[in-house]
Design a protein around this nucleic acid. Structure first.
Length: 384
RNA sequence: GGGGACGUCGUCUAGCUGGUUUAAGACCCCUGACUGUCGAUCAGGUGACCGAGGGUUCGAAUCCCUUCGUCCCCG
């Protein structure tokens, strides 16, 4: 199990790589759809494979609460339980403990919290979280960390950082399996803290490194600044994972900053509220304007949805609360994301990532603005 | 034939011992948002002049009369 850096883009920090895991190889950059409850909502495993997805993300916190460690263990592990025999990355649940659970109490020892499902009380140590992920049998494990809110004072960020780093060491020491373990770099919006975190985590030594604690409310520019800075402090010979990000533009920006792995709920969650992603920006399919638009979401897209259905029908499904709508748009969005990352890999391979990114962003953003305001963005200059 | 109840945004309702209602809410509808996921949620917006007509009053969705309509009960 290893990471091979195949190529570096000459103009940006973008990289092409291959990460080997117990359940197969992952070409990087890669996108991991979020399957919190051991399912990427509305999609079957075959849908994911057909879309070109190579790895999915699941969640220790959620699976620990339901169905519980024991059931998955008895099923023969998470792969057998959910029928996905390709790589799985499990998030520790650190994020969920801080975002979902109530009555949370953090100490050096671990985190105590009440379940968001039934209020039952739990206490998890970093060692527990590793043991849980070991039971799940995921290919890549994430250690328990403390993800601070935004905005956050430097003192608080530093405190959380110290805790996360201490937990990281304990997590590493607790690993008894061959599963990969990534380290998480926190530090909020403070670049010196990010640097310090990266160094400390790097000293411990992990199979990969993640940038955590971003996209918790900061603006886009700040996210990019954090990512661009932090990747400078991350080892070049290990995969870099940007947790929870992002939109298609976020994606390309982060790839150009040297990030290899992403997960994000945006394509699937937005799909379920009726928003499709296309090369020309977001398409809010519930809008009235689509009620008699009989074109596919994207005429050039090769996904099942675009080959089989039109916008008017999908809008109708959303209007009538039919579950097929959620599925069709999820399918399209996941295909779109998978395709975007695949095309990005090709561009890196062919030394034209920078051009590809520029071209994509131009079309994506330009069309979004033109659609929204019904005129060319160039017209803005006329106002001044 | 006799008696009773009710008619308020597309829908369901609140208000109806008259002024604080330039008529409120929910759903629908229309826009946004959504970044280590509740099919969730959140944020805005359009929409009724109170069945119609007349009267009382400084002032009526609120009181009175007429009328139209719907529903119920008794024959």
């Amino acid at each position: 199990m290893s990471f091979v850096l195949i190529k570096k883009d000459p103009k940006t920090k973008a990289r092409l790589g291959m990460l080997s895991t117990a359940h197969g190889d992952i070409e990087t950059p890669t996108f991991m759809p979020v399957g919190t409850q051991a399912t990427v909502k509305t999609l079957s495993n075959q849908d994911l494979i057909d879309s070109g997805i190579q790895v999915i993300l699941s969640n220790t916190y959620h699976l620990y609460l339901r169905p519980g460690e024991d059931i998955i263990k008895r099923a023969g592990g998470l792969h057998k339980f959910c029928g996905w025999d390709k790589p799985i990355l499990t998030d520790s649940g650190g994020f969920q403990v801080f975002s979902l659970a109530t009555l949370m109490k953090v100490s050096d020892k671990g985190v105590g919290f009440s379940s968001h499902l039934d209020g039952s009380k739990h206490f998890l140590t970093p060692e527990d979280v590793i043991r849980l992920q070991s039971s799940l049998g995921s290919d890549i494990m994430m250690p328990l960390d403390e993800c601070v809110e935004y905005p956050c004072t430097k003192d608080r960020a530093a405190e959380a950082l110290k805790l996360t780093t201490g937990w990281a060491k304990r997590s590493k020491d607790a690993v008894k399996s061959k599963q990969l373990l990534f380290g998480i770099i926190q530090g909020s919006t403070y670049m010196d803290l990010r640097k310090e975190a990266a160094e400390r985590i790097r000293e411990i030594g992990f199979d990969g490194y993640a940038i955590g604690g971003v996209s918790v409310g900061e603006c886009e520019e700040l996210i990019y600044e954090i990512v661009d800075n932090t990747t400078n402090y991350m080892p070049a010979d290990k995969p870099r994972y940007l947790m929870g990000v992002g939109t298609p533009p976020d994606f390309l920006e982060a790839v150009s900053m040297g990030v290899d792995m992403f997960d994000c709920v945006v394509p699937t969650r937005n799909a379920r509220s009726g928003t499709a992603f296309t090369k020309e920006g977001k398409l809010p399919l519930r809008n009235r304007g689509f009620c008699d638009d009989f074109k596919p979401i994207d005429p050039e897209c090769g996904c099942y949805t675009c080959k089989s259905h039109n916008r008017a029908y999908i809008r109708h499904l959303f209007n009538t609360d039919e579950i097929l709508g959620l599925r069709l748009v999820s399918l399209h969005n996941i295909y779109f994301y998978a395709k975007l990352i695949q095309v990005s890999r090709e561009a890196i391979r062919e030394n034209r990532f920078s051009e590809f990114k520029k071209e994509f962003l131009q079309k994506y953003c330009f069309t979004t603005i033109r659609r929204r305001y019904n005129h060319s963005p160039l017209a803005f200059s006329d106002w001044s």
